Simulated scan of single mutants.
Amino acid sequence: MKIWTLLLLRLSLGWLLVIWGADKVFNVAHGMAVANKFYFDFLSIESVLRVGGVLQMLVGLAVVLGFARRWVYPAQVLFNGASLLAVMQSVIDPWSWVFEGSNVLFYPSLIIFAGSLLLIAFRDQDRLALDAGYSGK
């Protein structure tokens, strides 16, 4: 059961990065709006946003496949950690009791971040990954 659970977690978290990256590449206006609102204009140059989106999609596909996990899992944590920090106000106060403009729908960012860390913690037990037989040494 553990290997199937890790596979499902890897597939879902990796595909989330693919979706977010594709949004930056193919829906640039939305990506720019998100960058401006949540990331202090970081990546708010169209060409940089698209390159970031492609990178995010490549990391996501590598996570889905379980390829180069030693390198892409930490990259995934950075992507998801940045998202978590961007919406931290909504994680701390999902119902806007203290912070105006919080949104309960952003609370899962904490769960996504925790799942990303879990993939790192159990990397050696994910036998269905493409690089499962590679020791990385």
Rank of each mutant, 00 (worst) to 15 (best):
I92R: 09
A82P: 06
F40A: 06
W71S: 05
A82H: 01
F99S: 06
F67P: 00
F122D: 15
L118E: 11
A68C: 10
I111G: 14
Q89L: 13
A68V: 07
L105W: 12
L43W: 03
M88W: 12
A121V: 13
F42S: 10
L49V: 04
A86F: 05
W71G: 09
F106M: 06
G101W: 03
F113R: 07
V91K: 06
L110S: 11
V64R: 01
I112M: 11
V51F: 08
W95M: 15
L43F: 07
I112T: 13
V98Q: 12
F122Y: 15
L117R: 10
L43G: 00
V87N: 07
I111P: 07
F40M: 03
L58F: 02
L49F: 08
F67I: 02
L58W: 06
S90N: 04
V51C: 03
A114D: 12
I45H: 06
G52P: 00
I92P: 01
Q56C: 03
V54Q: 04
E46M: 02
V87F: 05
Q56H: 02
V63P: 04
R69H: 10
F79I: 09
L61G: 01
S109I: 09
L43E: 01
S90T: 14
G115Y: 13
G101A: 01
L49G: 01
L117Y: 15
E100R: 13
L84I: 07
V87W: 04
F42N: 07
Q76N: 11
I120G: 10
S44G: 00
L110G: 12
G60W: 02
P94L: 10
L85R: 05
V98M: 14
E100V: 15
Y107Q: 13
N103W: 12
F42M: 05
L43R: 00
I92Q: 11
G81L: 08
G115M: 14
A68S: 09
F99Y: 15
L117F: 15
G115C: 08
S116K: 05
N103F: 07
A86C: 05
V63E: 03
S102D: 06
F42Y: 07
D93I: 01
D41W: 08
A121G: 10
V98D: 14
Q76C: 11
Y73K: 08
S83K: 08
G66R: 01
F106T: 07
V98W: 15
A82V: 07
